[in-house]
Design a protein around this nucleic acid. Structure first.
Lengths: 175, 175
DNA sequence: CTGCACATGTAAACGGTTACATGATTGA
DNA sequence: TCAATCATGTAACCGTTTACATGTGCAG
């Protein structure tokens, strides 16, 4: 029983505790979105599919107030999640338009190369700031996975930012 | 005139010199595929679209032998390419299933965490090997962009591999 | 009482991969 | 002569984003 891409995040978050589709989306946006995004257009239909195949079950509607449907992972869901975690496949895809531009920027002159690098540097700097804001919360929560993944993201962006700076210096020296 | 994602690679490679769709695919697979992939299913239709809007033109069919359609970038195509290179947008997307697994792997115990890290390490090690094989060729070609992008890829994968190793040690120490 | 955040959902469009179809040429 | 590679192309499918539709409850 192969899990769809979106099912992987959903089951993961439901394994931590029952949540609504809305909840899941909020969590994704504050954590996994940097390496695994999901939109409402995927989450809501996927939740229904997961219920249909018995990996997830409704855990009661709104306790008073607002409409709200909470879901809980089933034992079958736990099994499927574990099977996925232990499976060998680990897709890795990168789409980096800055790198693509850099690849061709030589055709347009050194100024273009420099501005491409500067914008890539900006993007990494911003990412670092956003991740630093989140870090204290992740550290306080004390869960191993989220914290280490966050620190990896931080370190990776710092590495990339420094690489952009070094390469910028090199480009300007050659000019 | 916004360039479609695939049009960006196509125009870039055609700016270096005339090529067929098949050529472009080969080049992509040997270079940009690590951060910007493209399949025949996109390249051939996109070439036709680019001809239709005048950014690219046919540069003659097969000189004897095999069937083969070569394309050349037009002045309008050069302009569009430069406009794209100088534009501010630089999409950056990452899909890293290893990180997603790591995010949740704590739920399944430390052995799962370790095996997820080991497989991520393997993936980066393999990437390093593949990139090292290509490097001498890129260095010999002497074009700034491709060489620096390749070295960035190499450095990034080395960084990630080392991070996996360090984190593995940490995980095993805690056990 | 108004605007914002909560909350769920669907439809259309887009971008991409994969599989399939076709056929020519080259080298073993 | 047979397999591999060259070479172009299309159709089906999948996953994803975006825009839209609808309505609730709370705070100012």
């Amino acid at each position: 029983m192969e899990l769809s891409p979106t099912a992987r995040v959903i089951l993961g978050f439901l394994a931590v505790g029952p949540k609504s589709g809305y909840d899941i989306k909020q969590r994704v946006d504050k954590s996994t979105r940097f390496f695994w995004a999901a939109s409402y257009g995927q989450i809501y239909p996927e939740l229904k599919r997961l219920v249909a195949i018995g990996l997830v079950e409704p855990a009661g509607e709104a306790t008073g107030g607002r409409r709200r449907i909470t879901y809980r992972i089933t034992p079958a869901g736990d099994e499927a999640l574990e099977a996925w975690l232990e499976g060998p496949e680990q897709l890795h895809e990168l789409r980096d338009e800055g790198l693509l531009k850099l690849f061709f920027a030589g055709l347009a002159g050194e100024e273009t190369v420099a501005s491409v690098l500067e914008r890539k540097l900006d993007a990494h700097t911003e990412a670092i700031e956003r991740l630093r804001e989140i870090e204290p919360k992740a550290a306080a929560a004390g869960r191993f996975g989220p914290l280490h993944v966050l620190r990896y993201g931080l370190a990776l962006n710092e590495f990339s930012a420094e690489w952009c700076e070094r390469t910028l210096v090199e480009v300007k020296r050659e000019k």
